[in-house]
Design a binder for these strands. Sequence first.
DNA 1: TCGTGGGCATGACATCTGTCATACGACAGT
DNA 2: ACTGTCGTATGACAGATGTCATGCCCACGA
Lengths: 204, 204
Amino acid sequence: MSHTIKVLLAEDQSMVREALAALLGLEDDIEVVVQVARGDEVLAAARAHDVDVALLDIEMPGATGIEAAALLHRELPRVKLVVLTTFGRPGYLRSAMESGADAFLVKDAPAAQLAEAVRKVLAGERVIDPTLAAAALAEGANPLTDREREVLRAAADGSTNAELAKLLHLSQGTVRNYLSTAIQKLAVRNRAEAVRTAREKGWL
Amino acid sequence: MSHTIKVLLAEDQSMVREALAALLGLEDDIEVVVQVARGDEVLAAARAHDVDVALLDIEMPGATGIEAAALLHRELPRVKLVVLTTFGRPGYLRSAMESGADAFLVKDAPAAQLAEAVRKVLAGERVIDPTLAAAALAEGANPLTDREREVLRAAADGSTNAELAKLLHLSQGTVRNYLSTAIQKLAVRNRAEAVRTAREKGWL
DNA sequence: TCGTGGGCATGACATCTGTCATACGACAGT
DNA sequence: ACTGTCGTATGACAGATGTCATGCCCACGA
């Protein structure tokens, strides 16, 4: 209890990362011992610095914070995991929890919640926004199959059916079938809307 | 010179905003005297607190940081303007400068540049990333007409031609014409790619 | 072992999208 | 006065997209 809490901070935007570090630095019982800017540097950094809590942004190059969380959970199970994100997408919350996260915070929550969350997870508590939790439970699980998600993700940048077919080694008709079922499952009118709502829900 | 620099901080994500405030709070000569979370609260706050420098995030509800900058520039010309953004889009830089910004920073620049920029703009200097400046000059101006931009923006969420026509009070054929010319000007294959590249360039 | 669902494919059809030619009025610049 | 550009519109056409029926193979759970 008496020694300071060692925190790893993973966030790709330097200015935000260092600002968050400054914020946590104001707390007497918390020390940011290592910062990384990429998801695929998290594990090594956590090992090297024997951290108590990892603070992981989701949107990062190399690997997402959720992927990093899953890896840490497997390799260093005693490290507590706080997942931080810009977007309060219910699907994100769901996958973060499935990856072993102990806390899930959105960046537009009050700053005080950050240090608070760090202390709480270390005490064995879980921290999640009740509103988001309700939304995650209400919307149910991702209805898309793996292939549907793959195709939708690939279609997100405006690629044409022919390009998607080549890219995914499928026939053009199959691509259209997957997109069609995805469009119906999401109850929208075309692929662009499908991409949009899948993103919003965190299903993409 | 001797009294502290009064800063207004506008950024919608509380955690980031307060973290940036903490960061600036570490500097002896800088004081964040007021924080706002919306673009349309900037002017009143700047007036009420007689600030020296306004730090404006671009992506905000109410009004963008660029719109807020233009307004401040007109109403309170002695306030120096630092525009801050997640995305280093050349078109953003261009419109920020046209709106009277004195500095343009991207959030993945080192945190030290923030305080530095505040001091520099107050000293009458301009602060911009040379690489971004080059890109902004190289890519030239936005080739889209007002209507083309409007239609493209409206089409971004996957709306169909019929919906766009209704929304914009145009005939369906006209909508298609605008999208067609936009697609050609941007040298892409369909509306989705057009939206994508227009966004990337900061032209949307 | 049977049924179900996923992954994959084809063909046919209707609709949506993108292109092009053409046109007219407004307005700015030469 | 002439030209160019923008906003708006139409009609025709080709190609892309979305839907549907149907079929095959495979794995998995009842």
